[in-house]
């Protein structure tokens, strides 16, 4: 039961990643791509948490935290750049 749910989680996460990747490729504007990138990052963070669970290594959680931090800064920076370039 638990095992089955974990496989389901991985499958759903992978589907989510592919769907968001579709938006990232289609765009059409830079803002759309950044929005897709943001979602992709968050899906990756949950992916890292799942990897930490699978491997049983808590150190991966620090990676997830730093990843979240960098993604936030990245989105803010790009948004700032978009506003400046009007």
């Amino acid at each position: 039961m638990v095992e089955g749910l974990l496989y389901l989680t991985a499958a759903l996460g992978a589907t989510a990643f592919l769907l968001a990747l579709g938006r990232f490729i289609r765009g059409p504007s830079a803002a759309d791509r950044v929005a897709a990138f943001d979602v992709l990052t968050i899906i990756s963070i949950t992916g890292i948490v799942l990897a930490a669970l699978a491997e049983g290594r808590g150190i991966y959680l620090d990676v997830a935290l730093v990843y979240a931090l960098l993604s936030f800064l990245g989105v803010i920076t790009v948004a700032h750049y978009l506003e400046r370039s009007v």
């Binding site: 389901l8 759903l12 996460g13 989510a16 592919l18 968001a20 289609r26 929005a35 979602v39 899906i43």
Partner: peptide, 19 residues
């Protein structure tokens, strides 16, 4: 495990909405 599955289901809905 149930929480994990529910969470990733919502992630999937979000990505579907994004698309």
């Amino acid at each position: 495990a149930a929480l994990l599955a529910a969470g990733s289901a919502f992630l999937m809905f979000g990505a579907l909405g994004l698309l």
